[in-house]
């Protein structure tokens, strides 16, 4: 039987792992290889690794680090951060990444998604859509670590990404990042209803119980979380954790 993936989302800053709140105030939480090792032990469904400063610094996530992760990980993992050329995607896949995540480049040059999908196949190309609500509640597409706002309708953009060959969309809520206030279910429901490719929701996940409840309505293909799997409780003490295989099966 098919079940959706529960995906730990790890943020890289330099060579270290950090966790943010609403995309700011990164707190150092440890060594990425140590975390990968632990998620191996926990038999995590999949890992997502994003270099949060790469696009701003106009560089790509470190190929060497991805190679190291590829040599350690027994599970599929996707990587993102500043990817902007076909050659970078080629290298990242060669060193072991299962899929690549296109964020800022997709916002700035949507046609690149089509080019990448034609070259590597739909299954390899993931587009991350960072969404921030204005104080009036309007959803805006943001990019470059939420430093820039695009003048694009979220739903139109999501459909364009599907049409251009994205194999999955990560819909990430900037406002809920690191807050434990719950997924943006309203947004996720509307996006998954309008699209025919898999959707993974990220940002605000409060507990694995929330996944169980949310899944009844949302029926997403993936649920991602950072804080939930790297902190113990809301006082943010670092403790890498993940549901056991038995717990996972009970969720769906």
């Amino acid at each position: 039987m098919y079940r959706p993936r529960i995906i730990p989302c790890l943020l890289l800053q330099g060579q270290g792992l950090v966790k943010t709140i609403k995309f700011s105030s990164p707190t150092y939480i440890g060594d990425p290889m140590h975390a990968v090792h632990l998620f191996n032990e926990y038999k995590a469904d999949e890992l997502l690794l994003l270099d949060i400063n790469a696009s701003i610094e106009n560089r790509c996530i470190s190929i060497d680090l991805v190679r190291e992760i590829g040599e350690e990980a027994n599970m599929p993992f996707s990587v993102g951060g500043g990817i902007s050329t076909i050659d970078q995607i080629q290298q990242l896949i060669e060193v072991g990444a299962e899929r690549v995540v296109l964020g800022s480049i997709a916002a700035v040059n949507p046609a690149f998604v089509r080019e990448a999908s034609q070259r590597f196949g739909r299954s390899t190309i993931v587009v991350c859509i960072d969404v921030k609500r204005t104080f009036l509640g309007k959803q805006k597409l943001v990019y470059q670590n939420a430093k820039k706002t695009a003048n694009t309708d979220i739903f139109q953009f999501a459909k364009q990404m599907e049409a251009y060959g994205a194999g999955e969309l990560l819909i990430q809520s900037v406002d809920r990042d690191g807050t434990f206030m719950g997924l943006d279910q309203e947004l996720l429901f509307e996006i998954t209803r309008q699209l025919s490719i898999p959707i993974t929701g990220i940002g605000g996940l409060s507990s694995t119980d929330e996944i169980k409840q949310a899944h009844h309505t949302l029926n997403l293909n993936g649920y991602g979380a950072g804080s939930l799997f790297v902190f113990q409780g809301k006082n943010r003490g670092v403790l890498i954790n993940y549901p056991s295989s038995e717990e996972l099966k009970l969720l769906f």
Binding site: R3, R5, S123, G167, E168, I197, P198, N221
Partner: peptide, 18 residues
């Protein structure tokens, strides 16, 4: 698979299955 499944089935088939 897209052409042979219901629209509510998201393709690619992505994740864990038996």
């Amino acid at each position: 698979l897209q052409a042979y499944t219901e629209p509510s089935i998201k393709i690619p088939h992505l994740g864990w299955n038996t």
